Amino acid sequence: MFFRILSIIFPVFAIIAAGWLYARLRRRAGGGIDMAFANQLNMDVFVPALVFAALASKSFDLASYGRLAVAALMLMLASGGIAWSLARLLREQPKTFVPPMMFVNSGNMGLPLMVLAFGDAALPAAVVLFFVENLLHYTLGTWMLDHHARLWTLWRVPVIFAALLALAIKFLDLPLWLPLFTAIKLVGDVAIPLLLFSLGVRLALSRWSDVRLGLIGMVARPVIGMAFAALMAYWLQLDERAAAMLMVFGALPPAVLNYVFAERYQQEPAKVASLVMIGNLGALIFIPLALAMTLP
């Protein structure tokens, strides 16, 4: 079991470590580090292509993932409720602490981890989890930080647009030219390694500004997530693989996007950066634990 888990998590953390090492060496050599264009390209082109290819594939059946989507949604909302109470207990601003406890790294870490752990056939389910998490993050997450945000423009987010387009094609049963689908899938294949590498670069540039809050979040995020994952899987009677994927989803660390949002809305970005950084380091403990609990 140990070597099986190691074989799953090693490629994920090895690519993250490569990004971290690259950034550290560039800084030591006095060179600049600009991942902005690569990250923008990933979020505007590669990840949307990955999402579209997964949801538009012939093997994807939307109805079979409905309960998994509901479970993920309820898990995040429940995690947010517990985190709000914990933030009040810690005398921290809920708008600082709650989003990182709700919105997890379902893209950078979740997508490759799910595929490595459960096989290529798990990619559509992993994309469903990613889509639900992103949809809630861009709606409720944005509203939490800015009550005046214009959510009607959500469809302009490339990932959301790609998902809606793929779902429309499936719903209307429109034919998709196979060479075009193959081209889109090839473009999407770039996304996963680039997501992991850019996460490593981001962690290398983060600061340890609030270790206490980061350590609390490092434990609270996966413990709350896994507890509610088990509850939702039992309540909604998910099948074995869906329940296992939900457990891994619940164990994921805070999404890097939390820091981006905190910086944009000036919501204590230094504290959020620590929650994200230390939480992702804590994944070295909690991801293997979740896999040990779920792998047969």
Rank of each mutant, 00 (worst) to 15 (best):
P11A: 00
P11R: 00
P11E: 01
F13K: 00
F13D: 02
A14N: 02
I16L: 11
A18N: 06
A18I: 08
G19E: 02
G19W: 00
Y22H: 13
R26S: 13
R27I: 10
A29W: 10
G30C: 05
G31L: 13
G32V: 06
G32F: 06
G32N: 14
D34H: 09
D34W: 10
M35T: 12
F37C: 12
Q40S: 14
L41Q: 11
L41D: 06
D44C: 11
D44E: 14
V45M: 14
F46D: 01
F46W: 08
V51Y: 01
V51D: 07
A54D: 03
A56Q: 07
S59H: 11
L62S: 12
Y65E: 13
G66P: 01
G66L: 07
R67P: 00
L68K: 03
A71Y: 03
A72Y: 04
L73T: 15
L75S: 08
L75A: 09
M76A: 11
M76H: 03
A78W: 02
S79I: 06
G81D: 02
I82K: 09
I82S: 12
A83R: 05
A83Y: 06
L86M: 13
A87Q: 05
A87N: 04
L89N: 02
L89F: 12
L89R: 13
R91K: 15
E92M: 10
E92V: 05
Q93S: 09
Q93W: 03
Q93F: 04
P94Y: 08
P94F: 08
P94M: 11
K95D: 14
T96I: 07
V98K: 08
V98M: 10
M102E: 05
F103I: 06
V104N: 15
V104A: 13
V104Y: 10
G107T: 09
G107L: 07
N108H: 14
N108I: 01
N108M: 01
M109D: 04
G110R: 02
L111H: 00
L111T: 00
P112W: 06
